[in-house]
Design a protein around this nucleic acid. Sequence first.
DNA 1: CAAAGGGTCAACCTCAGGTTGAGCCTGTTG
DNA 2: CAACAGGCTCAACCTGAGGTTGACCCTTTG
Lengths: 229, 229
Amino acid sequence: MSTAEAPQQRLLTIGTVCRRLQGEFDDISISKIRYLEDQGLLTPRRTQGGYRMYTEDDVEHLATILRLQRDEFLPLRVIRQVIASPEGSQQRRRKLPPALGTPEDEVTLTELVERSGASPDLVRELDEFGLLAPRTGSGEKRFPETDVEVVTLCARLNQYGLAPRNLRAFRTSADRNAALLEQVVAPALRAKNPERRREGLEDLQSLAEIAQELSALLLGRDLRRLSAS
Amino acid sequence: MSTAEAPQQRLLTIGTVCRRLQGEFDDISISKIRYLEDQGLLTPRRTQGGYRMYTEDDVEHLATILRLQRDEFLPLRVIRQVIASPEGSQQRRRKLPPALGTPEDEVTLTELVERSGASPDLVRELDEFGLLAPRTGSGEKRFPETDVEVVTLCARLNQYGLAPRNLRAFRTSADRNAALLEQVVAPALRAKNPERRREGLEDLQSLAEIAQELSALLLGRDLRRLSAS
DNA sequence: CAAAGGGTCAACCTCAGGTTGAGCCTGTTG
DNA sequence: CAACAGGCTCAACCTGAGGTTGACCCTTTG
């Protein structure tokens, strides 16, 4: 074959790679390696004839994947993210809230108490201190479904000794941050063009995610400092 | 942190448990709860008639299982081990956030610019507006490693039009929240007894996680409302 | 040029993690 | 005390992840 005097990085065929890894991973197989490639976890070079050829780095990469799978029990879909994301992986599992811009389900006070498992008193206090967001329309108050979780979380904080009165601070912070982000996208949201509005919502979502991560980081930094002193 | 447990020991039926957890886990279902029991992960009491009855602890236990499954991607068979293993097991999964109470690595300004990929100007501004946490000691400033990510995130927000001047609000919020949480554990952290201090740190970590989730939720709620109007 | 090794693709397999439905029982409420 | 919402079990079923197998054809290399 081509005796190109290119920097002949010794390339390995799939069979060789497989044998090489058999030591550390007994469940490796040629078909599995091909499967992982199919799943987008690997992209070896190919010869003219279509043979897969692996560099040493490819092999190391593959070993990493197999280790994540075997030792951390990560599903391939997650490994794909971990691998793909810039080394400073911040794959924090954020349960994304219901998409912005779609109306949310509402619950009654009774449901709220029931589903959060908190005492009616606590719920009342939380409401009083503005941590809940009821729609005070005709008749019975209705709360956004999110408030179920809000109450649950507040109840846990309450157990640690943070009364609703103290928790108000979280709301204030959230409000201020929300207002800040809203400023940015306000023009887009007020636009006539629906496409423009949709983009505004998407931006808002992105902004919220970034802002949230930033807040988490800053909080962590503060706490670290406080706890170190 | 222990609040006096009401002696009522109110037991919950499976349906109630299910509704209660719907807030945090949207994929929970009665059949899933029964399935988890079948898999040996749960053992609620039974009434004479055979009804499953859950204590608050059972619910917390179940929530833990669901969290391990959702956030750590652990298969049930592994969760079973983790749960069953003796309390003081070394199975502690180390996650990304550097543990509280251990000193953090530091980087120089140059490294900070380099690793965040932001412009020196931006970094300078961020510092000026108090978003970074340099240790202003002898000679060159040194930043905690966390600041690399802080800069990265701020840079992204900056692209959306949020200048460092605006971002200060995030810091203020974080500071206030941190102070709030710190109050709770301050006595423990100042304790002589090292065991007590360790517990304080652990509580602080838990508090931070809950607080963060709460903030996220509140922010989401605000934005939803803003974007709906 | 032959044999050893590779390539693709569709069909298939196994297991985890549940869901569904039938048929029956329990607990609560008016 | 009847009605009815909610629970119970058990077997059958479903879906998706993570591969395997086999048929058939193509490359590479001694």
